[in-house]
Design a protein around this nucleic acid. Structure first.
Lengths: 200, 200
DNA sequence: GCAAATTAATGATTTATTCAAG
DNA sequence: CTTGAATAAATCATTAATTTGC
């Protein structure tokens, strides 16, 4: 479990294979009368494969460093972190698309940010709080009774607000999907964060 | 295993409390909000909560067979599957945002589809091909040496087209991110699939 | 033949793991 | 070392095939 050397790059394939022989691999679910087999032979796949020009097409191909002038990855500001942490403490764990969008809009006032940053932040924060807690729990289990050690600041983790009430009616219900960003952009900018963006 | 008749698409949460309960997957009372740091305490989070107007929220309760799109999941057509499988055979594994967009556009000619469907399809297909192969490998490992068995048609898995050229310039580079859908929509509709879309 | 019940397949989400920037 | 970013694995949830009893 450790050395998965996955490095699938883009294929310089030559698209001359004509065929697509649908080798019905399954015994179950026999394919319905497919009219598509014969028709899907010829199309220009090359258009797909072009080695990614992204939208920001104008990049200096100088050969080595083609990085966005703003830097590579999101570098959150203090205000952004503070807000995110508050939301987390308040119980937010996996915001849905709309929530992400709104958060992003607001946090954008304090620095450059994208929706995915917000999404990833919650993912990572949740996961790392979890493992931190687990580490603490296990550590205390067999460690010497008094070892505050001050190293782990033990961040009192407000447990995820699960449904504690016995009244269950669904064994587990998914809630949100984090897609749907496609064109959800509305221009009404809500005033959710009455903070005074000062410094920075 | 099949009598769960729960489909409360609309969580009847009452958001009347001045505090807030985000990430309310189930109906639950907001937990006592763990005194937050006093600086960023006041803002109106309720604005986040409005129960998401994006989705359908209006089901044909009249008992009619009117399957209105919105609450259902993607049900791919034969043509769509055929194209996706071809792309997969050709080596595509994790298309980037732009590729997903283009594929979506093209597959949209054969049925309703979104970008996330394409993304998920590749994720799932890749994973399930992997586990299928693993199962086969393990099965053959301790099975009798000659067992053609003809049952599993062994879908000749075109190995992932690795970069064969010695000319590498980046030692493993994460290539794509599947975000960035925000507003990538261009209206030039490429004609990648010169197929004649006929009704399913 | 047929609809309800069962099962297999698979779409959609969440969680765990990994890579790498700073 | 910390943590943003990305992918893989595990899991949930829903739909279609298939079976079953009539």
């Amino acid at each position: 479990m450790g050395l998965t050397m996955k490095l699938h790059h883009f294929s310089p394939c030559s698209w001359d294979e004509p065929s697509l022989s649908l080798a019905c691999t399954k015994r179950l679910r026999p394919p319905p009368p497919t009219s598509a087999t014969s028709t899907l032979t010829a199309f220009d796949l090359k258009t797909f494969i072009r080695p990614d020009t992204k939208k920001d097409s104008s990049y200096p191909r100088t050969g080595v460093v083609e990085m966005q002038p703003g830097g590579t990855r999101w570098n959150p500001t203090q205000e952004q972190i503070a807000i995110l942490e508050m939301l987390y403490r308040r119980g937010m764990r996996t915001p849905n698309a709309q929530q992400i969008e709104q958060i992003t809009t607001q946090l954008g006032k304090y620095g450059k940010i994208e929706g995915k940053n917000v999404f990833y932040w919650f993912q990572n924060h949740k996961a790392r709080e979890r493992q931190k807690q687990k580490r603490n729990t296990l550590g205390l289990a067999h460690s010497s009774p008094i070892t505050p050690t001050t190293t782990t600041t033990t961040t009192i983790v407000t447990p995820i607000p699960l449904d504690p009430s016995g009244g269950e009616d669904s064994p587990y219900k998914r809630k949100c999907m984090n897609w749907g960003f496609e064109c959800l952009v509305e221009d009404r900018t809500l005033e959710l964060f009455p903070l005074h963006p000062e410094g920075r």
